[in-house]
């Protein structure tokens, strides 16, 4: 069943909890990162696990695939490190991991999902800026939240 990891930039306060947790789990290489823009905004940048993923389409060795939750995953064994995925990614996500000699990126916490845990960033975000779930349920949650705030 398709799952979505959605970030509501309006709710983000730039506290870097997502990045810190991701860094803790992945030992010094966070897959979600907060960038301070020149106007002083904090923007979390991470993989959107696109429905029609340009990285997946362009990969010459077909190293990128979608798993059972529709998370876009790089098979690091097949990856030749050609950077084509990064070249076409609208968010500049894939990153060359020197330790494994291949491109790597957010896998929507694949290990955690196997244990029925949500991605760590979404579980720990203090501001409820990171949503995870099946598309309809997730959109419902967001709309309900906004209704609550408008009331």
């Amino acid at each position: 069943m398709k799952k979505v990891l959605f970030i509501d930039y309006n709710r983000c306060i730039g506290c870097e909890t997502c990045q810190s947790i991701c860094e803790f789990i992945h030992r010094d290489k966070p897959f979600i990162k907060i960038f301070q823009t020149s106007t002083g905004l904090s923007i979390p940048i991470t993989c959107h696990h696109c429905e029609n993923a340009p990285c997946l389409n362009i990969c010459p060795t077909k190293a990128i695939y979608k798993d059972e939750d529709d998370a876009v995953i790089i098979n690091t064994e097949k990856c030749i490190g050609c950077y084509m995925c990064l070249a076409v990614c609208p968010f500049g996500i894939p990153s060359f991991d020197i330790r494994i000699g291949a491109m790597n990126k957010c896998d929507m916490c694949a290990d955690r999902r196997k244990r029925s845990l949500a991605p760590a960033c979404s579980e720990m975000c203090p501001c409820v800026a990171i949503f995870f779930g099946e598309p309809q349920a997730l959109e419902q949650t967001i709309k309900a939240k906004i209704a609550e705030e408008l009331a």
């Binding site: 730039g14 506290c15 870097e16 909890t17 810190s20 947790i21 803790f24 203090p126």
Partner: peptide, 8 residues
Amino acid sequence: SKVGRAIQ
């Protein structure tokens, strides 16, 4: 420091 750094 920020909340995230303290959490980590």
